[in-house]
Design a protein around this nucleic acid. Structure first.
Length: 307
DNA sequence: ATTCTCACA
DNA sequence: TGTGAGGA
């Protein structure tokens, strides 16, 4: 039969039929008088198969393989399914980057700024776990310059080793990156600068160690034993008491600054991201309740690291 | 009516 | 991975 007939039967266009021939999927005989194609029933059957697979987005090359090696069909379909799944993930990623970027857009309408932001977000998704951890730490040190930043890193470090393996976490991670990215460096209150001048590098090192250790303990389940009596707690408190009292009064100021740059949701995102952080908060709460410690204006040792 | 070639997305 | 134009 001639091509118009085949068009009717297969619902394919001339163009498509010719194209499939060009690609070697079918080989109709050619009438040497007029150069017209003569399509066999077999050609039509093949074209129907091709059409079906094409509607499922199977690439023409794969269809070609399938036609010449019917036993490959399982392999090829699985391969195609994987492609689709990958593509879905890719699109989900793009969607999340754009959404997150849109959420943080209020501050800039500068397109250069915007695309830079999008690039940062996209690249942040391609990081491995180590790189994520390093990225956050660098950002923390930028937002909180100097010694206070080191203490922040010590406090938050234990929560930064989480794998981002669910869509929920991916969103939270993007929000966190976005949040830190647009946060300006903190201008510490004057008293704070004065306060930190007094500390040597060794002091800061030591405080970092202590903070880190405390947080680690709060994450672990040992916390019940090591902290749940008031005596032990007060002893530990003495170690960092000189630091604590002053720091607490400045935390509000810093919180304000974060809020002003729209970056005050770090905790929220970290909660979604890190099960350790949730555990930490949870243990903290339990502990505070059991000792009757207040969270309010007068400050207490537990909350002062929690910006 | 069909094929071919080229440019184009 | 096709489509559309235009000539043969």
């Amino acid at each position: 039969m001639k091509i118009s007939e085949v068009m009717k039967i297969t619902k394919l266009t001339k163009k498509a039929i010719n194209y499939y021939e060009e690609e070697g999927l079918i080989k109709p005989d050619i009438n040497s008088n007029n150069n017209y194609r003569e399509y066999s029933q077999n050609d039509v059957d093949k074209l129907i198969q091709i059409s079906t697979l094409r509607q499922l987005d199977v690439p023409v090359v794969e269809i070609k393989h399938i036609i010449s090696h019917p036993d490959l069909i399982r392999d090829k379909l699985e391969q195609h399914l994987k492609r689709l799944n990958d593509e879905e993930k890719r699109i989900e990623m793009i969607r999340n980057v754009i959404k997150t970027c849109l959420d943080g857009l209020n501050r800039t309408s500068d397109i250069t700024e915007l695309t830079k932001n999008m690039m940062t977000l996209k690249e942040s998704l391609e990081m491995d776990d180590r790189a994520r951890e390093g990225f956050i730490k660098r950002q923390l040190l930028r937002v909180f310059p100097g010694d206070f930043g080191k203490l922040m890193v010590a406090a938050y470090g234990p929560f930064l080793n989480e794998v981002v393996d669910t869509p929920e976490k991916e969103k939270a991670w993007l929000n966190l990156v976005n949040c830190l990215d647009k946060a300006d460096s903190i201008n510490y209150p004057q008293e704070m600068g004065e306060m930190y001048e007094k500390y040597t590098n060794e002091d800061i090192e030591k405080m970092s160690m202590i903070i880190n250790k405390i947080v680690e303990e709060w994450i672990s389940d040992r916390v019940e034993k090591s902290y749940m009596d008031r005596e032990t707690f007060l002893k530990k408190l003495d170690v960092i008491e000189p630091l604590h009292k002053k720091v607490f009064n400045m935390v509000k100021n810093i919180k304000e600054q974060l809020k002003n740059s729209g970056s005050d949701k770090i905790n929220e995102y970290l909660s979604i991201l890190s099960s350790d952080y949730r555990k930490y908060k949870n243990n903290l709460e339990k502990f505070q309740k059991s000792l009757g410690i207040n969270l309010d204006e007068n400050g207490n040792i537990i909350t002062n690291l929690d910006i």
